[in-house]
């Protein structure tokens, strides 16, 4: 797995983004990030840093006050949410990310409303990747467990064959073991040619599969760098701890999270 941070090959370029949920109360105060083709990039940061706000703004769910968002070289700032699917953006929200009353198969079909012709093919690929989806295809998505629901949500987004897949805390509510399963699948998805941008609360697990990361604080991108270096960066630990102590991210996460003994991605 070689880092692919090639600035000439940006798939997403967010510049000085200012946005919020209500007028005159911005959460993001000039946030800039970029993602290059083939990367997995993780956005970290303490609660209230604006991580979810950032992905929601990219997904067109919030109105952008200032700044610009470019996807595959095209300016998508202020574009309506429903049009972004056709621009190649897949987005998996953190909560309520499946249609609970609809069957798994119907959820997947809804993901492909603009890709009807290639639907059957994409679905077969997806069933290979997530055999559970095939097994539960006729079950209402709301009846599935948290991990399976997350697979449906990711699968639904993949049905539109996105170039960039954005995930808001894919590990939320999952056990450490399931988190590893989901993250292993994200690696497979990336290897199939989909670039990934995710927000993650579980910093260590997130960075382990990432190429690069950004640490947000108070609505601004404060630190960024290669995933491994972020784990040992004392500045990152301070941002998480609100400026107290000199702990590195390593200490912070080992103190708070139960980690699994896997080292993903070595073989790639």
């Amino acid at each position: 797995m070689t880092p692919v941070n090639n600035p000439n090959n940006k798939i997403l370029d967010v510049q000085n983004l200012v946005a919020g949920y209500i007028p005159n109360l911005n959460i993001l105060h000039g946030c800039s990030i970029h993602v290059c083709v083939g990367e997995i990039v993780t956005i970290l940061g303490p609660n209230g840093a604006g991580k979810s706000t950032l992905v929601k703004a990219i997904a067109g769910l919030l109105s952008v006050v200032e700044g610009s968002i470019e996807l595959q070289g095209k300016d998508i700032t202020g574009m309506e949410t429903h049009k972004l699917v056709r621009e190649g953006l897949g987005y998996v929200p953190q909560t309520e990310n499946v249609f609970a009353k609809l069957s798994v198969a119907e959820n997947l079909e809804l993901g492909a409303i603009h890709h009807r012709s290639s639907m059957a093919e994409t679905r077969e690929k997806l069933y290979d990747l997530f055999p559970d989806l095939a097994r539960f295809r006729n079950l209402a998505a709301g009846k599935l467990s948290g991990g399976q629901r997350q697979m449906v949500a990711v699968g639904r987004a993949l049905m539109a064959s996105p170039s960039l897949l954005m995930l808001d805390e894919p590990s939320a509510g999952l056990s450490p073991k399931l988190t590893q399963v989901v993250f292993q699948q994200l690696l497979k998805i990336r290897d199939s040619g989909v670039t990934i941008l995710m927000v993650e609360q579980n910093a260590r697990a997130g960075l382990e599969i990432s190429d690069r990361g950004y640490v947000l604080a108070e609505g601004v991108d404060r630190v960024n760098g290669e995933a491994q270096s972020l784990l040992h960066n004392p500045e990152v630990g301070e941002l998480y701890m609100g400026g107290h102590g000199k702990s590195t991210m390593e200490n912070v996460v080992t103190a708070s999270a139960t980690s699994e003994n896997s080292t993903p991605g070595d073989s790639a």
Partner: peptide, 20 residues
């Protein structure tokens, strides 16, 4: 199906590319 999707979760429907 799109209508049922919107009635259950309008935001997720928009994310899926459904024009509300």
């Amino acid at each position: 199906r799109m209508m049922r999707a919107v009635s259950e979760n309008p935001t997720l429907a928009r994310i899926n590319g459904i024009d509300l």
